[in-house]
Amino acid sequence: MTTEPAILIENLTKRYGSGPTAVDALKGVNMSIAPGEVVGLIGPSGSGKSTLLKCLGAVIEPTAGRITLAGEVIYNNAWKRTDLRVLRRDRIGFVFQAPYLIPFLDATDNVALLPMLAGVANPAARATALDMLTALDVQHRAHARIPELSGGEQQRVAIARALANRPPIILADEPTAPLDSARALAVVKILNRLAQEFQTAIIVVTHDEKIIPTFKRIYNIRDGKTYEEPGEGRPI
């Protein structure tokens, strides 16, 4: 039995501008990631990592190609959904280099906000949020305001938020950049555990030499094209 990929990307291209000044940021990207898998996306600056992430995050429109998310074709030379906000809210999780939590909400409400936006009642959304915070071992800081949390705690709350609506895919943009080795590896360990636990595929965009050896599979992006490489899969 073949497992359906969490995300399947076929011949994805992105062109900025038109005419002689046009720039092809993505020139036929192909990727396939299974549920529960954590892959690294590496490449030099200007190689197209951020463009690919924005295309997958449905914040910019690709020029051509096809994206299938957990069996649903969301892009086939055009978006297949009219409301991309709902797509992002329900089907895609985001983790950023900085946590970018909402500073005027506490940890629970930062996580609960996503289910609430999806129409889940406040008590149920908060219960889900608490489950996620527990999964990330920050449940004891559930009612702390964001400025009161340490950097590591904030990053874990941000991961909990990404998971809140149980998306099939999480896009992590340099999530370990500001952390030291031990903390960076701890975050990767958490991502691996959560990917398995929630059967979520995670794409980790990174430059971080400390964590690259931990991936079992890596996509190297150069000049707008991806090259699949086996990773070391070093245990953490």
């Binding site: 914040v59 709902v86 992002r88 985001f94 970018y100 909402i102 500073p103 906000l113 996503l114 936006l117």
Partner: peptide
């Protein structure tokens, strides 16, 4: 601005 960008990214409606 950054918080609003994140809010929009995670699916918050403009009206909210």
């Amino acid at each position: 601005i950054k918080e609003i960008a994140v809010l929009k990214l995670i699916g918050t409606y403009d009206r909210t």
